[in-house]
Amino acid sequence: MTAAAPLAIVGYYEPWWIQIIKAIVIFAVGLQLVPVVLIAERKLLGRFQGRYGPNRVGPYGALQPLADILKLLTKEQFRPTTSVGFLFALAPTISILTAVAAFAIIPFGDTQDIFGTKVGLYGLDVSIGPLYLFAFGAVAFYGIMLGGWSSGSKYSFLGAMRGAAQLISYEVSQGLALVGVIFTAQTLSLTGIVTAQKGMWYFIPQFFGFLVFLVAGFAETNRAPFDLTEADAELVGGYNTEFGGGRFASYYFAEYLNVLVVSGIVTTVFLGGWLLPFGIHPPGWVDPIVVLLKMSLITFLFIWVRATLPRLRYDQLMSFGWKVLLPLATLNTLVTAIVVVATH
């Protein structure tokens, strides 16, 4: 057991076969959730705009995402002559790998007894918690950047450059927004943060942190109103203009998985994870359902915002990130630190 789990610091070590099963289950769950979000988004966007949305494939159009995925995967792989071959193939892979890896730290429930072994309902509970998320977020940047650069097209390049500036600007605010929670919970472990919310969910005492994290989350996942990296009105399709077929599907998959990851982190950190209000303690198997319900709430918010708000202008995006969000996050951290020191 020396090298099996250098990341895990939970009080026990899970056997290797549990870790392998968990890796497969997490990947499968992530893979199954994405088409659900896809169809939910298209249906909801339709309703928000006074139309039906997809309703031809399957009952109520429910099989539309499967049809889309099949179409994309069976398409011919092509690339522009100006592109850089191996980077063009590598970039979507980086995006999808980092998205799945980030999904692994979302806790779906407390440790359970399954077949007599204690199993945590999460990929891994790292002692560095949110830093793990930010580390993979930092690598995910290269997926977008290399994709745009290696396409050899001006629109892709501009999209990638916008993505670079946007990601490093909003990552700072996102990180600072979580510092207040970490001060209050006194731990970096995500399961520890959930159990620390037994008395009150953190979105009440850490309301500004919650807001800042959510807004920065919109920007980090390149979702409207911050989707300037792909701004279809200005840049054709941004960094993924030249991608088609399976590679485009990888980018698309990674984007929606990132939405789910941000929803999961918001649920865990601000909405009490698997805890229910008013001291209700359901049996262990309910925990994942609670987490998924809360996650779908936040995902619904993502879709709602996309249908409601127009895209920002690029300079507005930058000045909002640095002049509004960052001072707010810093102030939140400062006030929380003073309060925590004063009450201890």
Partner: peptide
């Protein structure tokens, strides 16, 4: 990570690969 310095590993990725190198890539591109 192999040396059990998970904090240093994460900071290495976030600061160097994430922030510093992004600027390098930005400028060079």
């Amino acid at each position: 990570l192999l040396l059990r310095a998970e904090f240093v590993a994460a900071i290495q990725v976030v600061i160097y690969a994430g922030a510093v190198m992004v600027l390098y890539v930005f400028v060079v591109a």
